[in-house]
Structures are given as C-alpha cells and as structure tokens.
C-alpha cells in the first residue's frame, strides 16, 4: 500500500484548507498533551484579581474570570476535555453505528427492517434534547457526557455503513468470497468493511467536531462534569457578565470555533484525498 499511502498524503497536503486545519488541530492536541507543563497550576485556582482584562498583567494574556481564575489555563485544560469527549464519544458512536449498519446492510431483509426501525427511533428524537435527558438521568460527569453524545450520534453512521454494505455486498468480489466458502463474518470484516473505511473516516472526523460542539453546549447549560474546566462551561459561567468582560466568553468561544473549523477542514481534505475517483472516475 506504500505508493497509495504516499499518493494519499500528496493529495491531502495539496489542499491548503486541509493543511491549515491539520496545523490548528496539531496545535490543539499539543496544547492538551502539554497542559500541565504550560500551566502547572489547577485551572480552578484563583490566581489574580477578578475581571483582569487581557494583556494587563504579564503572564495573564487572556485575563481572569469573575473569580480571578486564569482564562489561559482554562483554555489549555479545556482542550483536554473537548478532545477527550470528542474522540471517545465518536468511538462509541462508531462502534454502535458500524455494527448495526453492517448487520443491516449485509443481511438485508428482516434484520435490516428491524435494525433500521430501531435507528429511526433514535433519529426522530432531537439530538440535543435526548443528550440533555440522558446526562440528567445519568448524573453529569465526563463519562455520562461521552455516553450521551455517543448514543445520540450513531444513527447517521449506521445509515452510511448500511448503504455502503448494500452496494458492496452484491459486488463480484464479495460473491467470489462466498463461492470459495468464506463465512459471513470473514466476509463482513475481511472483504466489505475495509472498503467502507474511507467514508467512515471522513464522517468520523466531522463527528468529532459535532461532539465537541455538543459537549460545549451541555457544559454551557451546566450539564458538564462539574469537576472539569471545559470551554462550554467557561462561556456559560461568563454569559452574565458578557457586557463588562467580553474576554471571558470570547476566548473559549474562539477556541471552540477554531477547533471545530479545523476538524471540518481536515474532514473535507480527507474526503477529497480518499475519494479521488469522484474527481476523475471512469475507465
């Protein structure tokens, strides 16, 4: 696969948007990994006078919030929460969605009908409302937020994977695998699933972005983990003083914006790089 991998990177990096997205994302990831080094102190600690505007005191470029906590530290630790929730909840959603979608698409018939009705049941409930209810029932914590986001985001994955399986299962190479006597599981995992990876990867990158937005919204409403400093929580806590202290909500807001934008750019770049056939198909 070596030349193909090289080809992929060449196509991906030729896309300026994807490159910018990748750089921003790398910055956010580094920020999250090295948070304890950048800001050794707890983001919850009060370290300066409250309502300190940005750039007023050296070392507090982003100012402080209503209780005198460093907003810079909040941003850095918030990156951890956002990425953690975004990635883990996407993995949860992919696990559920790929499994159900693959079974429905491969077996078809009654299995498909049953699984798709089940999926529609989840699709008809507004995502955010369901997430709020789930977090409220499970008690707010990082785990419950992850579970809630995972549960509300899998239906599109299931639909996508089902569609891919439906079109791939009648392809000749899948029939050939049946004729040589491969079992259904061997065919699902060995033949069909690897061929659906490109769209799944693209969708996953966009789902991480959506999950970060969902987490921020939940935290904004006060339904996030009360022990973690997250971007959404920071905006929520600062909304009452937005006219006196713009920086308290603007900086975490910009952080969310940039991260989500970066993920979307990367997703789009992946889409173009993984599906070059859309541009020049035909033989």
């Amino acid at each position: 696969m070596k030349p193909a991998t090289k080809d992929f990177w060449r196509r991906f990096l030729r896309n300026p948007g994807a490159l910018i997205g990748l750089l921003i994302l790398a910055a956010v990831v580094l920020m999250a990994i090295f948070a304890p080094l950048i800001h050794p102190q707890d983001p919850w600690r009060m370290v300066q006078r409250p309502f300190l505007p940005p750039f007023a005191v050296d070392g507090f470029w982003f100012g402080t919030d209503t209780l005198g906590r460093d907003i810079g530290a909040g941003l850095v630790y918030g990156a951890q929460v956002s990425l953690l929730v975004g990635i883990v909840s996407t993995v949860v959603a992919l696990t559920i969605g790929v499994t159900l979608g693959a079974l429905a698409g491969y077996y078809g018939g009654l299995v498909d009908d049953a699984l798709m009705r089940f999926t529609e049941f989840f699709q008809t409930i507004p995502n955010f409302a369901l997430a709020i209810v789930l977090v409220a029932i499970l008690q707010p914590s990082t785990e419950s937020v992850i579970v809630a986001i995972g549960i509300v985001s899998w239906p599109p994955v299931a639909r996508l994977v089902r569609g891919e399986f439906l079109s791939l299962r009648s392809r000749e190479f899948v029939q050939a695998a049946r004729v040589v006597g491969q079992s259904n599981l061997q065919i699902i995992f060995g033949q069909v699933l690897p061929n659906t990876l490109s769209p799944i990867i693209v969708m996953a990158s966009l789902m991480v972005a959506t999950a970060i937005l969902l987490e921020s919204s939940l935290s904004f409403l006060g339904l996030g983990d009360p022990n973690t400093m997250s971007w959404g929580y920071m905006i929520g806590a600062a909304r009452t003083v937005i006219r006196q202290a713009w920086w308290m909500s603007v900086f975490p807001g910009v952080a969310i914006l940039l991260t989500v934008l970066a993920l979307n750019l990367v997703g789009e770049g992946l889409n173009d790089a993984l599906n070059p056939r859309l541009a020049r198909k035909g033989r």
Partner: peptide, 8 residues
C-alpha cells in the same frame, strides 16, 4: 475490475 477486492 469488480471481482477482485481492491484492498487485498
């Protein structure tokens, strides 16, 4: 073209 799995 369709009878061989492109990923194997």
């Amino acid at each position: 073209y369709a009878s061989l799995n492109p990923r194997q």
